[in-house]
Structures are given as C-alpha cells and as structure tokens.
C-alpha cells in the first residue's frame, strides 16, 4: 500500500510576524514543517513500520524552501519526496489542483495531511483535494485503522467524537493529538539526502481568491486598574460597568 503525505513549510509557531509593504515578511523567520503535517508524516511512518504501508511519499507545493519540509519528513523515515514548484502566492484552490494532479499520477491508496496549516489556518487543501479527486474524506482524525481496503477513523466532532469508515483510496486529514511525531534520528538525517526527491512544475491555474489586505491584530490595550479599599473598589467597578463599559444589568 502506498501512502502519500502532503506537507507544508510554515513559519515557526514562535516566529514574530511582521508586515513589509503590505505583505507578511519572511526575513529572519525560522521555517518548519507544519506541526499538523508532521503528525501526518509520523502516522504514515507508523503504518510502514506496522507493515501496512510499503512506501511513504511526501509531497509539498511551494518554493525551493519547501525542500526543507520534505527533507525533514525524509529524515523522519519517509521514502521519497516530490516538490511541486509553485508560486508562493497560490491560493488553496491552486494548491489543491496542483497536488491532486501529482496524486493522480502517483496513484496512492491513502493520502494523509494535517487538517490545518499553522500559518494561514485556512484548513481547505485536503478537503479540496478529496473533492477534486472525488475520493472520500475524513477530517480532523485522532485515530486510524486500515483493514479490507477500508480506513476507519475517529475524528473530532462538536464536543465529542465520531467513528467513520470509508473505502480506500481516501484523503484523511489529522488532528495533532493523533500521535507524537518522532525526532529525526542522526542516521535518518544522514540518509535523507540520499533519498530521491523529484521536482515537478505545478499545473497552471488561476487563483480563485485574492487577498486584499494583511493587517496585524491591534496591540493589547492596557487595562484599567481599580485601587482602594474593597468597598471603594466595588463601587468604582460598578460605576465602570454601568457608565463606561455600558453593560446593561438586568434586575
């Protein structure tokens, strides 16, 4: 069984986001493999270790920088990579079209991905891929079992969880709680460079969306400090609620 994992290179989750000329600046930013996708890679490698998967192929769409994400996945234990060269301005639709095209030619039994990217958080690409391919899709999974050409997953549902079973091939996107991604081993890192990575050009399609503006959240305003004796404080606070914050108090 062939498993294909989609990974995205994202900003380090601790990176400080800054805007330059109206765009998000990547100067001096540490890039990492999207933590959600890292969980998908780990899941795929575990399937291989259990003898269920025979090959783990990792795919990323983006600039040359995305190669780092692929190499990290290879160091963790994936077998080979495919870098889809695509403009960094491609939207979720264009990304999904490009990745779906590669999936068609690779013909895997299972496609895994993180359910969301830690940077833009749009949570669209795996679902769009499934839609384009006409494959079944389970989102935000926390466990996965494969048997008799089917995949059965637990996934998060509003306030609880649900178990869903679909036929393979399928697109499955995961929640971070599915597993604990391993550190790449020293040997894994040394072997990563020897593993094959193919580079292909993305299918040329127009974006369906246009980003009009980026802006940073407003800086947090300093709070109001109420000082004095408890009685005094309570009175001031009550006055504040009533007259400044204008919160209606129903009797």
């Amino acid at each position: 069984m062939k498993v294909l994992v989609c990974v995205k290179q994202t900003f380090d989750t601790e990176a400080k986001i800054e805007l330059k000329d109206g765009k998000i600046s990547d100067a001096g930013i540490n890039l990492i493999i999207n933590p959600y996708d890292e969980v998908a890679v780990e899941g795929a490698i575990q399937l291989k270790e259990k003898g269920i998967a025979s090959e783990v192929v990792v795919v990323s769409a983006g600039s040359d920088k995305a190669m780092d994400a692929i190499r990290t996945a290879l160091a963790m234990g994936a077998d080979r990579g495919i870098l889809i060269k695509q403009d960094t301005g491609a939207d979720e639709y264009a990304r999904a079209v490009a990745i779906a095209e590669v999936i068609r030619s690779e013909d895997p039994n299972l496609v895994l991905a993180g359910h969301v990217a830690a940077d833009d958080g749009s949570s669209q690409v795996p679902t769009r891929i499934a839609e384009i391919l006409g494959w079944p899709h389970i989102n935000v999974i926390t466990s996965l079992e494969i048997a008799d050409g089917k995949v059965r997953c637990s996934s998060e549902a509003d306030g609880g969880s649900q178990v869903t079973e679909v036929k393979l091939p399928a697109v499955i996107s995961c929640q971070v709680s599915w597993n604990e991604p391993r550190y790449p081993s020293m040997k894994g890192i040394m072997q990563a460079k020897k593993k094959p990575v193919a580079t292909v050009d993305a299918v040329a399609v127009e974006n369906k969306t246009r980003i009009i503006e980026y802006f940073l959240p407003q800086a947090k305003q300093a709070g109001v400090k109420v000082e004095g004796e408890p009685e005094e404080c309570a009175a001031k606070l009550a006055d504040f609620i009533k007259n400044t914050a204008k919160i209606e108090v129903k009797a």
Binding site: Y183, S185, M186, K187, G188, I189, M190
Partner: peptide
C-alpha cells in the same frame, strides 16, 4: 541512544550515523 545521539562518533561503515567533526560538535 535511540536517536543516534549516543553514537555520533561511530563511523557509517561501522553502523553509525557517520557524522563529521563539525556536526558532532554542533550537536
């Protein structure tokens, strides 16, 4: 040990990761 950190000095031909000295010392 499982991650190969306890064998950073073991050459590749003897089953180690085969790091150069720069890598060994960075680690």
């Amino acid at each position: 040990h499982e991650l190969g950190l306890m064998t950073i000095g073991v050459p590749a031909e003897y089953g180690g990761p085969g790091l150069d000295h720069v890598a060994q010392n960075i680690v």
